[in-house]
Structures are given as C-alpha cells and as structure tokens.
C-alpha cells in the first residue's frame, strides 16, 4: 500500500472515528452532569433571562482582555486572534478542504483563491511560532505550561506547515507531501478530544457558565 493510500484510507478513517467518538464523549459527558445550582439569591434586578444574557456576554467579552490587563495581554490576544482567524480561513475556505467536508457531509460553500489561502497559511504558521516563542520566553507562561500545551501546539502547526509544503511542492514529491499532510491531520484529530484543543468546543460552555454566574452575582462581565 502506498503512503498516500494509507493516509487517505485507514489513517484518516481511524482518526475521524476517534475524533467523533472522543468529542461526543467529552461534550455529552459534561453537559449531562447535574446542574450545580447557585445557592445564593440572585442580585437584585437580575432575572433568569438576565443570566442567559450573561452567558452570551461571557462568551463575547472574553474575546478581549479587560482594560486593566490590556498591556500584559495585548500580544497574546492579538496573536491569538491572528492564528485563530488564520486557521479558520485555511481549514474552511480552501477548495480542497471544502471538497473534503462536502464528501463527508454534503455541505459546501464558496472558496477563496488558493494563493490567498496560501498567504494566510504563511501568516498563521508565523503566528503559531510566535505564540510558542512567547510561551517559552514568558516566565509565568513557561511555568504553567505542560506537555498538553506543547503537543497541542505541535499538532496544530504540523498540518499548516505540511499543507504549505504540499501546495508549494517543497522538499519532496507532491503525493508524499500530501500523504504527510493527511497524516498530520490524522494526528490532530486523534489528539483533539483528549487535549487542550477541545477548547474549540468547550470555550462556549466554560465562558458561558462563568458569564452567567457573574451576572447572577451582579459582577461586571
């Protein structure tokens, strides 16, 4: 079996199965837990609907740091937005990726020009590398970083880099680069449910719950 056949076949299929099963296990495992009621009375004037509003406010307001932290968090916030938006563009607006999603789900949408997506990919890769340098050079971040952080970073960067190499035909023959790219995606999918990449789904729950509780207590979100 050729490497590309293995990557497109058993590797990708196994990874997708683990990804779907793992993500559902994590999400349902959390959402089906008993709701922990807040014993205190709600702040005066805060209605249950207000707590729902607080849920969404919590998600939205955490996109940008509070003004008192802006200086310390400016780089990581802007850089974080750059590579998150970059990843979104690369994953969801590149024609071959849309073809992959269409094959799986039947859903498709318009793509961006390939060269533009490549440029975004370069920016995304640079941004991810900058994120690692920042993590390594910031004493506090380095102290709290674990294997989970570094490996999650690696499996995120690997598909971006291998994808760029594949479209540029750099380093090896295209079919080999494409196979390596697909294998790196398989690694990402396998790790996704078990590492910090799960925040792609869980940030809604954690930020929302925090927002709702803060609203209940009358705190500023």
């Amino acid at each position: 079996m050729e490497l590309l056949e293995f990557a497109r076949g058993p590797a990708l299929q196994s990874a997708m199965v683990i990804f779907v099963a793992g993500v559902l296990w994590r999400i349902i495992g959390i959402l089906a837990l008993p709701f922990i009621s807040i014993p205190s009375r709600a702040r005066k004037g805060v209605l249950p609907e207000g707590e729902v509003k607080g849920w969404f406010e919590g998600i939205w307001r955490r996109m940008w740091p509070h003004k008192s932290f802006i200086r310390q968090a400016l780089f990581s916030t802007i850089n974080g937005h750059v590579y998150h938006i970059g990843l979104f563009v690369v994953v969801f607006l590149f024609a071959p990726h849309i073809a992959f999603i269409k094959d799986l789900t039947g859903l498709s949408w318009a793509s961006l020009p390939s060269n533009l997506v490549n440029a975004v990919g370069v920016v995304t890769a640079a941004s991810l590398i900058a994120a690692l340098i920042h993590r390594l050079t910031n004493p506090v971040q380095r102290l709290i970083s674990t294997f989970n952080d570094y490996f999650s970073w690696f499996v995120t960067l690997a598909p971006v880099l291998t994808g760029l190499l594949a479209v540029s035909h750099l380093g090896a023959r295209y079919e080999t680069l494409l196979a390596i790219h697909l294998l790196s995606i398989a690694l990402l999918l396998i790790w996704f449910p078990f590492g910090k990449l799960m925040h792609a789904f869980l940030f809604v729950v954690s930020r929302g719950a925090t927002g709702a509780r803060m609203k209940h207590r009358g705190a500023q979100i």
Binding site: M16, A21, W25, L31, A32, H97
Partner: peptide
Amino acid sequence: STGLGNMGSALAGAAVAGAALGGGSA
C-alpha cells in the same frame, strides 16, 4: 483531498459509541 471509501457508517457508529460513553460517564 477526500478520504478513501465511505466513512458514513463508521462515523455514525463512532457517534453512537461516543454519546453512549459520554452518557455513561455522566
């Protein structure tokens, strides 16, 4: 860029297994 073969049934099975595992954990 697509996978080889039909993944539909495998993914449906994975979804059921994942949901059952999540429900069981909860």
